[in-house]
Design a binder for these strands. Structure first.
Lengths: 161, 161
DNA sequence: TATTGTTATACTCTATAACTATA
DNA sequence: TATAGTTATAGAGTATAACAATA
């Protein structure tokens, strides 16, 4: 399932954001899948290309857990799009290096992402488009900048053996 | 984690919608949790109150699976906010009846939901607020109305015994 | 002691499959 | 045959715990 549809008295911003976000995500996933990428792989590829970055740095940029990052980099390596290289300054850390093939795919995936965004924004009249972006930016940097902490569940130690 | 942050060339609508949606959801969840509700429980409660509705009908409204509905109604019954009653016209179906306590809670939860939405919209200048809602409505009823089908995974039969 | 990256795995969430009662 | 509701559970996704190597 996707979103709730609570009864509305005030305009139902929850529904609008959830539904639009969900549909856009499925579109993006479908479009990127055509070149064998997930949104996360695209994200890592692009930011790894910009400058030398470690897995932790890339995880922070993409707002992922470091363990999720491991899986994502595994996928990129397996597809021959990126490689782990030891950092020259910190022997614990791995720099994610984008291969030639990876750079080529990153170019294509960025085009795909831009295309999906463009198509969506083009569905709006120009004046609405501009204001929508301004308003969303204002929310994301202001009132809706930081999530409320979820109370974290306790977790048993993992079985040894 | 929550959303991807792909590099931007076109304005990154994915990030804006994901991030804003995610933060608003955590706020809503935290606010409703104070009276012991989830967003789904609120949704079911409100729509069950409007008229006599079966679980399937409520599931459709809230865009949930019928099995998710079972869990949600279980929670509402356990909290004494709603009851399953046999339909008078279809002996297979159950009408979800809101109790007196449930009606009281529904009133409060609707206030909470409205309050969270209001606070968010109030963070915007009035002209942006109006256009944002118009644009989002346009997307949700138009270009972003329907999700792309995800290729469904095969599923083994469940173990008997 | 703290951090990077890794493995193993616990937990959550959701939906599929199978079933009962009824239409 | 088809549908409403239920139970059991498969599977995806994600994050916590523990660990090895290094800072």
């Amino acid at each position: 399932m996707t979103a709730m549809a609570p009864a509305r008295t005030e305009p139902d911003l929850s529904f609008l954001l959830d539904h639009a976000g969900h549909v856009l995500r499925t579109r993006m996933a479908a479009a990127l899948a055509e070149i064998g990428l997930t949104a996360r792989m695209h994200c890592v590829l692009v930011h790894a290309q910009e400058e030398e970055r470690t897995q932790i740095q890339l995880a922070e940029i993409g707002d992922m857990d470091k363990t999720t990052m491991v899986v994502t980099v595994d996928a990129l390596e397996k597809a021959g799009l990126a490689e782990r290289r030891p950092s020259t300054t910190d022997r614990r850390a791995r720099i994610i290096a984008v291969t030639e093939k990876g750079a080529e795919i990153a170019r294509k995936s960025q085009e795909i992402v831009d295309g999906v965004h463009r198509a969506t924004l083009d569905a709006l009249p120009e004046d609405e488009r501009e204001v929508l972006l301004r308003a969303m930016n204002r929310l994301v940097t202001g009132h809706l900048a930081t999530p409320v902490e979820a109370p974290k569940a306790v977790r048993r130690a993992r079985q040894s053996g």
